[in-house]
Design a binder for these strands. Structure first.
Lengths: 220, 220
DNA sequence: CCGCGTATTTTGAATAGTCAAAATAAAAGT
DNA sequence: ACTTTTATTTTGACTATTCAAAATACGCGG
């Protein structure tokens, strides 16, 4: 059985690697895990010995197929647990991340499967992040952000790419949950501001930095 | 934060201590936790340093009020999680113990409270064991067992005092879940056998040892 | 009171994961 | 090319938890 620590390392390598092939630099991994860089190096070498990752010294780490499989199963647990906490226990969208961080290591595949069925086998969690399938497929579509999409078109919020309480709470209070309908009214690059029109709401102005954290898709 | 190991030691001391005042011998604790006796001694001394237990060398351990509080909160988590797994996820009564063993250390008080509400604030788990209240009260009623109760009276199964898969499965297959109605038809101490009549079922014969693990209350 | 068996404690060593700080390699600037 | 900066790795040490095996204390039968 992989320890909680091992599961966390693998999950974060997966999350930082995006295309699943790029090398994740040690520094990035260490800071994601809140350990000093030396610790990450030591641990990554141990993971390499166990066949979970490939370590290119002074360049970074990459998951092996086996490591990826394990990482995806942890991520699946995390996102299904989040979905459960929000949809069934009615917890606040912005605060479930920390809870899931613990539960993802304690839940068995059996329990997870029941939970999945109870939730109706959802494809995405409440933040809009895709949930890996049981078979380990991750539907990673590329979306535009409010900072980059065309103005004027009808859009739908797909996902918030930021885990912090503050930001999620801010998004929620301004009606920017995944699923919300809106359009970009104006974008002023020199001022770094984006103005939105929400369906039946007052206009809202965001900084370009914040807008870049909100993924959107064109309204079907 | 108490580690998972600490939580487990405290929980088992609570479970082995019954009246909450008796000293738990090291050997019993060690075997409940599946560690060698020396390990239990070492750990108990550490727990004593942190104020969770009182250690009487060569006699045993006992929880301090602080240790008891923590132990009860772990036990509450364990039993509410079991209830959730059976009542909501429809898992098998006999297999939830091991699952809860993991989850009890990963679930926050906040999540637990929502779960408790979802379940209707139950007083006992699916095995019939009482669930400690949020305030840390444990309703520990003394029940008779099938090995000791009066014969002929209408009874109801209250609890199975045995965690093993085999036994729970056996009990389930023979209609001996908490709540089942039955009466003791005959008890033969010299042969070590107890014969039951279940409401609308064929008679069933149990060993005295097995009968002693099934707690019953007189039918209201 | 003495020796015996059993439960408990001690001692020494191992493992997993971590940090601090020194050493090193690679990248970047002049 | 030479120096500086920055990222990574190494080294030595520490904590929590565990085991194996040796030492010790306790209660019991004679």
């Amino acid at each position: 059985m992989a320890s909680i620590t091992v599961e966390n390392y693998l999950k974060h390598i997966l999350l930082l690697s995006a295309d699943g092939h790029a090398l994740v630099p040690m520094g990035a991994l260490a800071s994601a895990l809140a350990v000093v860089p030396g610790t990450a190096t030591t641990m990554v070498k141990a993971l390499a010995d166990e066949g979970f990752v490939e370590h290119r010294p002074r360049q970074g780490v990459r998951l092996t197929p086996g490591g990826r499989r394990l990482a995806l199963s942890v991520l699946r647990k995390h996102r299904l647990v989040e979905t459960f906490l929000v949809n069934v226990l009615k917890m606040d969208w912005a605060e479930v991340h920390a809870e899931a961080e613990q539960l993802e290591h304690a839940i068995s595949d059996q329990v997870l499967d029941r939970l999945d069925a109870l939730l109706g086998r959802p494809a995405a969690d409440p933040h809009g992040d895709p949930i890996p399938s049981r078979g380990g497929k991750l539907d990673s579509q590329i979306y535009a952000t409010l900072a980059t999409c065309a103005t004027g078109r009808a859009l739908r919020v797909v996902r918030i790419t930021e885990q912090s309480q503050e930001f999620l709470q801010f998004a929620e209070q301004n009606g920017l949950q995944p699923g919300s309908a809106l359009r970009v009214h104006d974008r002023n690059l020199s001022a770094g501001l984006v103005t939105l029109k929400r369906k039946g709401g007052r206009p809202l102005t965001l900084s370009l930095a914040a807008a870049g954290k909100i993924l959107v898709a064109p309204e079907a």
